[in-house]
Design a binder for these strands. Structure first.
Lengths: 191, 191
DNA sequence: CTTTAAAAGTGTAGTGATTGCACTTTCGTA
DNA sequence: TACGAAAGTGCAATCACTACACTTTTAAAG
């Protein structure tokens, strides 16, 4: 965990290389022809490995799409913990969410369109995102000195994360985000 | 077996009969050996029909578990619309949720344990439940004279329904429900 | 009472994701 | 340099689900 970069042995390099080749091939093919119209065999072929190898690198077909699982969780926890004085937790989370509404490059837009238009992927992405719920909930609980499983804290974390899904339907996501978090903030502050 | 409610032709009766046989066989096998360890072929065999027929009656394996899709939606909408004077919408929804926390027969308990312990089923059930979101949101919007897609209304509906999932982790679900809805009510009333 | 067309059901053969197994190749290291 | 773990391979199998062409049943019209 302490080593940030990995200039390690040739072995690990090759492994990462194979993994990358798979992810790249997958993404390219998915964007070209749509997720459902690409088989794992085609991806394996395009990356010049066997299907067996593919499944040694990725837990399933969906996992090929979300290769980079960065430190989004750390940012969320930070938004809860390191907020500026006088700012409530929901407010800080709101700012963080508003900030992370990218206009984005056309590539990212195409990617998001694909994910959003493929039920399996949409669900998978949602599950991934919601995986941060407990971490955020614990951060909140720590801030207010409540037990880790405090209902209000868990609920706030859950609702805050769910907001991301809700705002997708609106023309002005930032405005929608603010309205939702205003509701949460009022409810939270009343406690 | 007797045609008390639906005195229609023999054809429809046989169809319903087949469907029922499939659902019954599925439920029995699932409870006996667990969802993942029963194949659709076994279910079809147990109901003495072909696999093809099975899929003409049910859209997929998960659908076999949730045969009765009653009028839960109507009750939810009613909780929003027909609440007693002076009671807020979140309060009424809270009461409805608390009321619907059944201790339940041992059969139901076993059923719920199975659903909850099988990721595929858990997700499926959640999707089914969340399908009522728009109906509830529209009912709320109608009550307050807002447009159907008003952010606050949609968010309230969403969060209220999500509560069901949140409370499952707690020893006292009713208490948890009340705390969550108190948060929502405070936020909602502040608007 | 016959005819007829849709509905219900069947069996076969396929696709596509995913797993298990036994095997070879490739490194890192003692 | 030899050895064991890790990476990769190919094959066969399972399982959900679909497409297709087929037979049987039944409702309803003639």
């Amino acid at each position: 965990m302490t080593e940030s970069t990995e200039p390690i042995g040739r072995r690990e390099r090759k492994k990462a290389q194979t993994r990358q080749a798979l992810a790249d091939a997958a993404l390219r093919l998915f964007l070209e022809r749509g997720y459902d119209h690409v088989s794992v065999k085609e991806i394996a072929d395009a990356a010049d490995v066997s299907v067996t190898t593919l499944f040694k690198h990725f837990s399933g077909k969906e996992a090929l799409v979300f290769d980079q699982a960065e430190d989004i969780e750390a940012e969320l926890v930070s938004a809860v913990r390191d907020r500026r004085p006088g700012q409530s937790i929901p407010q800080s989370l709101c700012d963080h969410m508003v900030r992370s509404v990218h206009g984005g490059t056309p590539e990212i837009t195409a990617f998001l369109r694909m994910v959003d238009g493929t039920p399996v992927l949409r669900d998978y992405a949602h599950r991934m995102w919601m995986r941060h719920e407990t971490a955020v909930a614990q951060a909140i609980a720590a801030e207010v000195g409540a037990p880790d499983d405090d209902v209000r804290c868990v609920a706030l974390a859950h609702f805050a994360l769910e907001a991301r899904h809700l705002i997708k339907a609106y023309d002005d996501p930032r405005q929608a985000t603010r309205e939702i978090f205003a509701l949460l903030d009022d409810g939270w502050s009343a406690g």
